Simulated scan of single mutants.
Amino acid sequence: MRITGGVGGMIDKGVYLPPPRANPPGSGAKDFSVLQEAAEWFAVLRSEKANAYDHRRWAVWINATPLHAEAWSRVEAVNQQFGLLSAVPAHAALSAPGRQRRTLVKSLVALCVMVAVGDTALDTYSARTYLASMKAQYRTYIGRTRKLTLEDGTVVWLNTDSAVDVYYTGSTRQIRLRAGEILVQSAHDTQIPARPLEVSTPDGQVRALGTRFTVRYQETGSAVAVFEGAVEISLAKSNAIQLAQAGFARDFGVSWIGASRVSDESRAAWVNALLTPDNMRLDDFLAELGRYRHGYLGCAPEVAYLRLVGVYPLADTDRILTTLAATLPVHIRRRSSWWVTVEAL
């Protein structure tokens, strides 16, 4: 794929790449450096001072290696914040004022959904969860949480950027997790016989056995952490059924279940708008923090190993970054409001 435009220019073929995680693929210095270069170029071309010479230099850079083209696509995807929009309409939507901007965003989202049907983009985790979230009964946006009380008294908390559907019938109680993460406090069913309470993801089902637990659906699979009682895990493409007890967590996919590992209530601190790392690596912490803010939050490989312990209120993620700079040998580099990296001093 050869690219000849710039920000607001045209691309030979539209490519959807999900926003990068806090650590770019490979987590190496080279990957990180390329993404940094792409971010710098994006900032240059967005500037009012950008000229034809800048665009020619950018074209030379992006065509020098496929790694540059991939990094550029990732930076544009982060800037879009809409998951499936191409560079030109996304830039127009972000620039339009007030009601005009909101109307354009809705129109573009609808257009992208139609265009995406039948495209390979629908095979990606981000595209699937994006479309499922658009149609879900209940959802939250980035940085928001929500509490639901269901008809039987079961309480469900939705974490940031999450979506669920709820199906209660005469024989079952089912919560379908379309994206993100939920905390469930199950209630005893008043019907006789009692209906089972299940949380399903594309990877399988979690059946509550009088319990309090979280379920998270992510690109690498699903995860359950149990705080009270126990749950049964059944897989989408296997007959295997495993038990997860209070104080433990397990990962699972469509045909595999990981080993039990110790877990505790800190995994659900987000219900109280907190992150409570306990000897957590900095890169893992930033990956979690990045779920609560728009844009890209990156970590340089040189500082990824640093460890964190503490309580961090999620109401102000920028303040958390300031605290990190004051307590760790790092500094925060802000190339824009949506592109932030934590780097070594």
Score class of each variant (00 low, 15 high):
Ile175Pro: 13
Ile175Leu: 15
Ile175Thr: 05
Leu177Ile: 12
Arg178Lys: 15
Arg178Tyr: 02
Gly180Phe: 12
Gly180Glu: 15
Glu181Ser: 05
Ile182Met: 13
Ala187Gly: 03
His188Gln: 09
His188Gly: 00
Thr190Leu: 09
Gln191Asp: 15
Ala194Phe: 02
Ala194Thr: 14
Arg195Lys: 02
Pro196Arg: 11
Pro196Cys: 13
Pro196Tyr: 11
Glu198Thr: 04
Glu198Lys: 00
Val199Tyr: 00
Ser200Asn: 04
Ser200Val: 01
Thr201Tyr: 08
Asp203Thr: 03
Asp203Trp: 04
Gln205Arg: 14
Gln205Cys: 06
Val206Trp: 00
Thr211Val: 04
Thr214Cys: 05
Tyr217Arg: 04
Tyr217Thr: 08
Thr220Val: 00
Ala223Ile: 01
Glu228Gln: 13
Glu228Gly: 08
Ala230Cys: 07
Glu232Lys: 07
Ile233Gly: 04
Ser234Leu: 13
Ser234Ala: 13
Ser234Phe: 08
Ser238Asn: 15
Asn239Leu: 09
Asn239Trp: 04
Asn239Tyr: 05
Ile241Arg: 15
Ile241Asp: 11
Gln242Ser: 12
Ala246Leu: 10
Gly247Lys: 07
Gly247Tyr: 00
Arg250Asp: 04
Phe252Asn: 07
Phe252Tyr: 15
Gly253Glu: 05
Gly253His: 10
Val254Arg: 15
Val254Tyr: 07
Ser255Ala: 15
Trp256Pro: 03
Trp256Ile: 07
Ile257Asp: 07
Ile257Val: 15
Gly258Cys: 14
Val262Asn: 02
Ser263His: 10
Asp264Lys: 03
Glu265Asp: 14
Ser266Tyr: 01
Arg267Met: 10
Arg267Lys: 09
Arg267Pro: 01
Val271Gln: 15
Val271Tyr: 01
Val271Leu: 04
Asn272Trp: 07
Leu274Pro: 02
Leu274Ser: 01
Leu275Cys: 05
Thr276Cys: 06
Thr276Phe: 05
Pro277His: 10
Asn279Met: 06
Arg281Ile: 06
Arg281Gln: 14
Arg281Asn: 14
Asp283Met: 03
Asp284Ser: 12
Leu286Ala: 11
Leu286Pro: 02
Ala287Phe: 13
Ala287Cys: 07
Glu288Pro: 00
Gly290Ala: 14
Arg291Asp: 13
Arg291Ile: 07
Tyr292Ala: 13
Tyr292Phe: 15
Arg293Pro: 08
Arg293Lys: 08
